[in-house]
Write a protein that binds this DNA or RNA. Structure first.
Lengths: 202, 202
DNA sequence: TGTACATCAGTGAACGCGCGTTCACTGATGTAC
DNA sequence: TGTACATCAGTGAACGCGCGTTCACTGATGTAC
């Protein structure tokens, strides 16, 4: 049971942020289907209608939360990537694996987040092109693959569709594992296959 | 607007089947979140409580529907596969592509079905092993890959993780396209990469 | 061939619930003079 | 330094809704004798 916090002031001060972080907390625990604006408001200690000063409706709160989760994922990946910084071919290869693994781990640790990110709530606006440019995780993948080519770890000829193949394999296994159709250990096997497929030399 | 049918008899005769097919119709149109037992009962022309003679609750109706959709997908794939029957290497390669394409087309045509199949409602019972054995689409994939090896189109050494890689790529691109993160035309590109990855000779 | 009766497959009213959203409102804040 | 006032950020009651599920019930069916 969560207990509602009592505010001491009439004005909350940072209600917009509070709404998102509280929504995040609920989605984390129970998934997006069960998310209720009233529960969020109650948890914050604010009236049910207060949220409407910041979001036109429930869907748009979910959308904002979803997009912020893409940022969180990118942050997490970048934090892990700097641990294997370096210009060597070995470092570049390791970064590629870290990129895949962090994506997977993120999803396994917080499957409800993963579901929200790839749900209907997070596509509404903008084109695929634009979404991709704004998706930092995707940009990181591009740089990572460029590094592989530059350090001579990956064949230039295979570069063209490397983003597509990498993202598909990583997202595909992750999604199938989260939904119970593959086992956890299948992920590393898939990553091995992917490296082989991209001609990444061991 | 759907109009409720009027039954002429007190006993419906085939209510269990009617519940599933009507649920299918609603999920097809609006997705699983909005599925309501009351609406289904009303559409069939039966009282809201009648469904409880066949399903303990809403979730189990969704689960049964979901599993039947896996069967439908397998049926669809098999119908398309027989069109490219034959023992030649060329036919085996074509079957592999058909298998991927039908998966994708199925999802594009009925995204709500795709979402239900890989939602929480369809994993409840049984292990990954068992699920896979009962999943005809997966069995078909196995046979298809075996054919590729036998007809000399695919390197034996790459056979081991071929199911995993194939399913991941196909499922991954499909999922990303359905959720608006990739474009429709990315699918064929990914399939090309996959064939390259598996060493399938053109 | 007819009837008693167990069983099956529905009914329909009710419970209790929480939800998203609207609306007229009021308390707090900060700025101009 | 003090005050008037516009603006902002909340309140809280209400609307209207549909939902899943339970329960005591009744109408229809089919079988045994």
């Amino acid at each position: 049971m969560t207990t509602a916090r009592v505010r001491d002031q009439y004005h909350h001060g940072d209600l917009e942020v509070a709404l998102i972080t509280t929504a995040r907390k609920f989605v984390k625990k129970n998934g997006l289907e069960s998310l209720s604006l009233r529960q969020i408001a109650h948890e914050i200690g604010v009236s049910p209608s207060a949220a409407y000063h910041y979001f036109p409706d429930r869907n748009s709160l979910l959308a904002v939360l979803g997009f912020s989760l893409f940022e969180e994922l990118a942050d997490y990946q970048e934090r892990e990537l700097v641990k294997v910084a370096g210009a060597s071919a070995r470092a570049a290869r390791e970064r590629f694996r870290v990129l895949g693994r962090t994506y997977f781990e993120w999803a396994i640790r917080e499957p409800h987040f993963f579901n929200l990110m790839f749900s209907d709530f997070c596509l509404i606006e903008s084109s695929v092109e634009q979404t991709r440019e704004e998706n930092r995780a995707y940009q990181t993948l591009i740089h990572c693959l460029d590094d592989l080519v530059e350090t001579g770890s990956m064949d230039k000829k295979l570069r063209a569709s490397a983003e597509l193949l990498s993202w598909s394999v990583v997202h595909g296994t992750t999604s199938l594992i989260v939904s119970g159709h593959l086992d956890t250990e299948d992920f590393e096997r898939a990553l091995d296959s992917l490296e082989l497929a991209l001609g990444i030399r061991k």
